[in-house]
Amino acid sequence: MAENTTDGGWFEGLRPGDLDGSRDAIESGSADSPADWPERAIEAGFVADEGEYYALLHEATVAAAETAVRERERADDQQLKHGVRAMDDADRTANELAERLAEWAGSVYDESGSGVDYARDVAARDPEGPVEERVVSLASTIVDLSDEARELESFIEARAPIAAPNLAALAGPVLAARLVSLAGGLEALAKKPSGTLQVLGAEDALFAHLRGHAPSPKHGVIYTHEYVNGTRPADRGSAARALAGKLTIAARIDHYSGDRRPELEAELDERMRTIRARAGDGEGDDE
């Protein structure tokens, strides 16, 4: 409903066919109190009857919702989500096809190999005959997928500090993008407790634990952070909790204010020094 002092209605000053104006009025406006808006719309000459009012209102609200969805999907954090998922898909597909190539090329050439590096060697060959043409073509496709994954990684490294500056500084751009992707967006990540962020990516292990078939996981994808995988096993639970706590704070600052807070890094570094100092004392949490 349009923001005004006369409570004339969201349709005040609009033409019935002005969908953009109606959408903006519904999207950003307000009214001081409820009223019989269909009746007022008829009195104002905006519509002929109540049926026409609700038809126009429906059309305008649907348009407003579609605009909001488009804007949300184009947001920086959503681009990070799509980018990291595409990178992972490209990497996974390249590696799966590289296994297939190793089998096929091994039946054609005397030399054998494996992985994307072997695919690069095969892709550089001059094929002789239709079989080799297909093998070399497959190898070229693998190389293209691998190269695309690295281009996507560069995109993530450039965009993450823009979409989530504090999260990217603490986690690194790629891990920050993974956390945003797993949560479904920066806002969703910012609303999660640190304990949930800590085990993002370990859902299978968590569900197994809840069913009584496995111990509680200490960490999910944050294991890739040096502060977790570089800490001795006895202290990884504490390290994961400390990291998750700071990442949660970083995500909330990025979403709600967006200002850069370098002190978060200093605080995390100090906490990790304390945790790692236990190694010299022979202590550990063993969780």
Rank of each mutant, 00 (worst) to 15 (best):
N4S: 15
T6C: 06
G8Y: 02
E12N: 10
E12W: 09
D18G: 13
L19V: 15
R23K: 15
I26P: 01
E27S: 15
S33R: 15
V47A: 10
A48C: 08
E50R: 14
E50P: 05
G51K: 12
Y53H: 11
Y54W: 15
A55P: 06
L56Q: 14
A60P: 03
A63S: 12
A64S: 13
T67C: 05
A68P: 05
A68W: 08
V69L: 14
E71D: 13
R74G: 15
A75F: 00
D77L: 00
Q78L: 09
G83W: 01
R85E: 13
R85V: 01
A86H: 11
D88Q: 11
D91W: 09
A94Y: 04
N95E: 15
L97Y: 12
E103N: 13
G106H: 12
D110Q: 09
G113K: 02
G113R: 00
Y118P: 09
A124D: 14
P127Q: 03
P127D: 00
E128N: 07
E128T: 10
P130L: 10
V131Y: 07
V136S: 10
L138E: 07
I142Q: 11
I142M: 10
V143T: 14
L145K: 11
S146R: 10
E148F: 03
R150N: 04
L152I: 05
L152C: 02
S154R: 14
F155I: 07
E157N: 12
R159M: 08
P161L: 09
I162F: 00
I162G: 02
I162N: 06
P165H: 08
L167C: 00
L170C: 13
G172P: 01
P173S: 10
V174N: 11
V174G: 09
V174D: 09
L175D: 12
A177F: 07
R178C: 09
R178E: 15
L179I: 04
L182P: 02
G184M: 04
L186Q: 06
E187R: 15
A190I: 06
G195V: 06
Q198E: 14
Q198R: 15
V199Y: 02
L200R: 06
G201I: 03
A202D: 05
A208G: 09
H219K: 11
Y223E: 13
T224N: 04
E226Y: 06
V228G: 00
V228H: 00
T231W: 05
R236P: 01
S238V: 01
A242I: 03
L243H: 00
A244L: 01
S257N: 11
S257D: 13
P262V: 02
E263C: 01
L264G: 12
E265W: 05
A266K: 04
E267W: 03
M272Y: 03
R276I: 06
A277L: 00
A279Y: 08
G282M: 07
